[in-house]
Design a binder for these strands. Structure first.
Lengths: 296, 296
DNA sequence: TAATATGCATCGGAAAATTTGATGGTGGTT
DNA sequence: AACCACCATCAAATTTTCCGATGCATATTA
């Protein structure tokens, strides 16, 4: 019997048999069979030249020598497992899955850049996008998502946050609209028929808040749940739409983008919990999100 | 790749490849083949998720990570080999506790010598003496005692035995008793009033058995549970007591020791179980017991 | 440039080791 | 005595490791 053929699986079996005081129970705990455990202990008996466990009634008891060996072998096993523990996250070779909770704004602005980078640098990484819809914080707390991005502020303990970017509202009108040629005054803006985006709920965009604070009420001609098709809705009409500047950037030549009299600047932040805070992969991914945003 | 399947042979290969800077030379040194070494290094590459050795020209060089792993793995390998090395017991420095099951006879004859030696040679060793009282074998089996000494024979499997000494019965009478001057015949012995020791139970000493086999019945005048005070009970009376010769050796000048017509020779043996058989300390202690007995 | 040497990676088959499920033996309990 | 729990051992199936051959890459030499 060459003692070098002892593997760490055998040391794990030794530890388990000692802990359970039973070959059969150790086998169950390891998802193995009693006879495999018996064979392994027999190997160790030969390696250490000691019975290690002896029959006593219907059970088994460790020898004095076994107690010494279990203690030291346990230390060796723990040290080896620590040595084999991945040191840093290797994007190129990792197989992982991450869930990001956000909404249309992020999907239109940040996510395209992010996914492009990830496909190139971490091909084994799978990114799941789920809608937050004001549930973002709960999703994080429940572990349903790993990351949350949006125009929100979480001050409670248990959450980590990071500022990503600033934005403000701009107006979008048909390129042939006479209003397209100069900035809109507050009065003209308030008098112009509006397309208002509700984001699928009763969301009140911050420019509407600022407008009300200035004593103006919007002349709502159309409500839509998403800003996704806004250019197509506006072109050929006298409507004005109001969307974040980074969303409007992608609109084509059929519409014109004008400054908004109520720009209502807002921040987009990234949040996560302690569950993922120290994990090398998650740390890396948060860096990647910041990179993607920096490229906007 | 389950990291537990890594064995110490693999760690040895890792060390050798690093030391030789070559798969082929490591294989030669190990009496193996280059392809087996390559296969083993491949296993370790998967376990540690690192290339470990990379081609450079016609040779191979370790990665940074490999240098860390070789250092720690080398320590683990050395510690394991030391653990598998048979241990020697160091009496002078050991702290240990041993339980010896025996009865009055052994406590009067063997134990005084044994404990005197132990106090000198193994000061950290604690010896617990418990009475066996015909329960000796069960105490051994249940791990309540480590050693059993007595006039018994255990032939069952699971027990190890060793012969310690022989003894036989002698008669003890008052020094002034007229019978003290010559050996007793069987008839005179049987007719003389006897002190019989029952050892706290219904123990029938072997001289009584031999006496009955010879057609004689003892004339019992007194029964006592222990031979401890026999000289004091006999002095100034016409009683005869019958005890093992090695017990009688310690009696003072107030009594006379005579050969017994029914000497009923018996053996005193030492027994222990597989639980302690190979342990260096126990092996040493068994040797000490034999020494103590040899000095009787 | 071609030929040669060195040396790791990989292949398919042989050999060895491990796992599996069944069975036997031992000890304890009712 | 019957039954149960549990380790030891068996033979066959499965998996892993080793072996010798071959391929590929790099360096050296004529």
């Amino acid at each position: 019997m060459d003692v070098h053929s002892v593997d760490f699986a055998a040391l794990r079996v030794l530890r388990m048999v000692h802990a359970h005081g039973s070959f059969t129970r150790a086998a169950e705990a390891l998802g193995s069979t009693q006879s495999a455990v018996s064979y392994t202990i027999d190997r160790l008996r030969r390696a250490f030249d000691d019975p290690l466990f002896v029959r006593q009634g219907t059970g088994t008891v460790p020898t004095e020598r076994c107690l010494e060996i279990v203690a030291e072998a346990g230390r060796l096993l723990d040290k080896f497992l620590a040595l084999a523990e991945p040191r840093a996250f290797d994007p190129a070779h990792a197989e992982a899955e991450v869930t990001l909770s956000c909404n249309y704004y992020e999907r239109a602005t940040m996510v395209p850049h992010l996914i492009r980078n990830l496909r190139r640098t971490a091909p084994g990484l799978r990114l799941n996008i789920i809608a937050s819809s004001v549930q973002g914080k709960q999703q994080l707390s429940r572990g349903e998502s790993d990351l949350l991005v949006g125009p929100i502020r979480i001050k409670e303990s248990g959450f980590y946050g990071r500022h990503l970017l600033e934005d403000h509202y701009v107006c979008v009108v048909d390129a042939q609209n006479p209003l397209a040629n100069a900035p809109l005054s507050a009065e003209i803006f308030a008098a112009t028929p509006q397309v208002v985006v509700t984001y699928g709920g009763n969301w009140r965009s911050s420019y509407l808040v600022e407008m009300a604070e200035g004593g103006f009420a919007p002349r709502v001609a159309l409500e839509v749940p998403s800003p996704a098709n806004l250019p197509e809705l506006i072109m050929g009409t006298d409507l004005v739409g109001t969307v974040p500047r980074r969303v409007a950037q992608a609109y084509g030549p059929g519409v014109r983008v004008l400054p908004c009299p109520f720009p209502a600047a807002f921040a987009i932040d990234l949040y996560w919990t302690a569950r993922t805070h120290h994990a090398p992969m998650h740390r890396w991914l948060r860096g990647q999100i910041a990179l993607a945003v920096g490229a906007l």
